[in-house]
């Protein structure tokens, strides 16, 4: 019984694949929603809480993604805290990141609508 139920669940691999493709979107949305500079650890806590645990992954993997986003001009970072004390690198969204989020939200919505139609979860309008 348990086996049958588990077979019908999405595998962690497929959730992993979907998460990888949506991490940038999730980070941009989180930062813009909170409107506050955030460091990586705090972002992970918030992403996990918002997704009710579904968006859980190796925490360290957020850093290559943050660095790539900063390199691409989607985020800007700065260090908070005095040297010699506990310092944190915090990130904020740039104007380019804001535009990217809008574009990705639109693409995501189109994709979601298409998949719901394909899977018969929504009647064709």
């Amino acid at each position: 019984m348990d086996r049958a139920v588990n077979d019908n669940k999405p595998s962690s691999d497929s959730i992993d694949q979907m998460r990888k493709g949506t991490t940038t979107l999730a980070i941009l949305k989180l930062l813009l929603d909170t409107g506050e500079p955030m460091h990586g650890y705090l972002m992970i806590q918030e992403l996990e809480a918002r997704s009710r645990g579904i968006f859980a992954f190796n925490e360290g993997l957020i850093y290559p993604r943050l660095h790539q986003m900063e390199h691409d001009g989607l985020l800007r970072s700065r260090w908070e805290g005095e040297p010699g004390t506990r310092r944190r690198k915090v990130y904020v969204v740039t104007e380019k990141g804001r535009r990217q989020l809008e574009a990705e939200m639109e693409q995501w919505e189109t994709f979601r609508r298409g998949m719901r139609l394909l899977l018969g979860l929504e009647g064709a309008a």
Binding site: N58, L61, Y63, H71
Partner: peptide
């Protein structure tokens, strides 16, 4: 364990390589 030390080092290297 939650951080995923081994995988992160490789990903960071791959991300920053060439910059």
């Amino acid at each position: 364990a939650r951080f995923g030390v081994e995988q992160v080092g490789e990903e960071l290297q791959a991300t920053h390589e060439g910059w």
